[in-house]
């Protein structure tokens, strides 16, 4: 991985596994408790209207419990923040605390307009333009950071690349950026799609993704570029 730009998919998966495990454990715990209580404390006999005995409330216990929940929350927040602070992740995922794109990153200017995408490679003079009849392809080099500088001509769009577990919005009048690395070569049909409802044909506003080896990519830029 060049320049410490992280593998977003791996970072996602690492974080997700923790959240998922904790979530499933809590759901099962509570479901089991509900079932056990219903079975164990089910009213028996005909006098089901009689009040149950016992104290209702135990403040020290409740506060202890709240403390435990707070600790779980603290751990989750810490995990999330440290993922966001990870130097590799930081240049990748922007937000207000965005880092600069890595210097050696390939640059693609992305323009969204209802309901198609246009990709310009300023360093190679390449333009890839989608039309009603032709789905555009985003061609990328393998294992190298690529920074997408995105803007829109009309309404808000968004780019979601499920394979990378990542998306950012695309605004008119603003530029947003995202940096992705594809560690492996491949072709993903409809691998990127508009993810902000943008009107009539939002569902069809997608693009293919093709990841080439650096050599093939260089050949492609020479052939397409001027």
């Amino acid at each position: 991985m060049s320049d410490g730009v992280g593998d977003i998919r791996r970072e996602f998966t690492d974080l997700f596994d923790v959240y998922w495990a904790i979530g499933v454990a809590i759901w099962l715990l509570i479901a089991v408790l509900v079932v056990v209580f219903v079975v164990r404390y089910r009213a028996r006999g005909d006098d089901d209207a009689a009040p149950a005995p016992g104290r209702s409330g135990n403040t020290p216990l409740e506060l202890t419990y709240a403390g435990i929940v707070a600790c779980i929350v603290a751990v989750l927040v810490w995990l999330t923040f440290s993922t966001m602070d990870d130097p590799g992740y930081r240049v990748t995922a922007q937000g207000l605390d965005r880092g600069e794109p890595p210097a050696d990153a390939e640059l693609v200017d992305v323009t969204g307009a209802r309901w198609n995408w246009r990709f310009d490679y300023p360093r190679h003079g390449i333009s890839e333009i989608g039309t009603d009849l032709r789905v555009p392809t985003l061609t990328l080099p393998e294992d190298r950071p690529v920074t997408l500088r995105m803007t829109s001509l009309d309404v808000i769009h968004a780019i979601w690349i499920p394979e990378r577990r990542f998306k950012q919005d695309v605004f008119p009048g603003r530029t947003t950026t995202m940096t992705v690395v594809f560690p492996d070569q491949g072709f993903w049909r409809s691998g990127g799609q508009c993810n902000q409802f943008c009107g009539l044909r939002h569902a069809e506003m997608d693009f293919d993704i093709r990841v080439l080896s650096q050599a093939d990519y260089d050949a492609w830029t020479r052939e397409r570029g001027r």
């Binding site: 209580f37 219903v38 404390y41 089910r42 009689a50 149950a52 409740e62 929940v69």
Partner: peptide, 30 residues
Amino acid sequence: FSLTSTMIAIPAGIEYFAFLGTMWRGRIVL
């Protein structure tokens, strides 16, 4: 906003504890 959103689990957890605490040693009628 991530911090505040995750913290919501604390009051929500307290509510769940109270629900379960109410059923605990109750005389549950389904």
